[in-house]
């Protein structure tokens, strides 16, 4: 779930998403930001990609303009509106919703957010169906990090119900992360 807190690791990773910006002013001493640039200063209207967190703070200071990423372009939004369920958002970015929220200040704000939670809800309902029907595990290839977390929560409930019905719950089992580690130790 989206926590939006300073220490949230998903929040930090979402801010690593590259965005294209175009500078609106000449920035003294910021030439190092430009890829393969040798100049000391950053020229006006140079286009390049930087991480989201830097892009946002530059946009806030009117130093640059953030370009709308492809996955928030009008044509892609129409695709999203048409059928949000079958689209692989992971292909675009692992943090589709988080990036959208963070960008909403610099782009068209409320409209984008409204679209985001509409898409999120539609995809969640579809996801819930998939979970309860025990269907194709390939679905996880289409999910963003946020949805994947929900998927795992749902699958755990399904597994727990199954285990309970089979009365398997009183067996203490190795945790998933530990099981992986021991395997590696043996290989050595």
């Amino acid at each position: 779930m989206i926590k939006g807190s300073y220490w949230d690791i998903d929040d930090i990773l979402a801010e690593e998403e590259p965005v294209m910006i175009e500078t609106t002013k000449e920035i003294k001493g910021a030439g190092f930001l430009y890829p393969q640039g040798t100049d000391l200063d950053l020229k006006k209207s140079s286009r390049f990609s930087i991480p989201l967190w830097l892009g946002i703070s530059m946009a806030r200071r009117d130093l640059a303009k953030i370009e709308v990423p492809k996955f928030f372009s009008d044509s892609y939004r129409n695709t999203l509106k048409a059928d949000p369920k079958i689209i692989s958002l992971k292909e675009r970015t692992n943090y589709f919703f988080e990036v959208g929220i963070k960008l909403s200040d610099s782009l068209d704000g409320a409209e984008l957010v409204k679209l985001l939670y509409k898409v999120f809800l539609a995809r969640f309902i579809h996801l819930f169906n998939e979970i309860t029907h025990n269907s194709d595990p390939k679905i996880i290839k289409k999910l963003t990090e946020l949805e994947l977390e929900l998927y795992e929560k749902g699958m755990r409930a399904v597994r727990e119900l199954y285990d309970w019905k089979e009365r398997k719950f009183d067996i203490i089992r190795t945790g998933q992360s530990v099981a992986k580690n021991t395997k590696r130790f043996k290989l050595k």
Binding site: M1, I2, S104, V113, F120, L121, F128, E149, A157, L161
Partner: peptide, 28 residues
Amino acid sequence: SIELQAIRRLLPATYDSIDYMRKTENND
């Protein structure tokens, strides 16, 4: 209780996320 089990973890997390998105919408 048994049906609650299926949604106990899932629904609150989903609603919290939607809530979070809505809050940012109102902030603009």
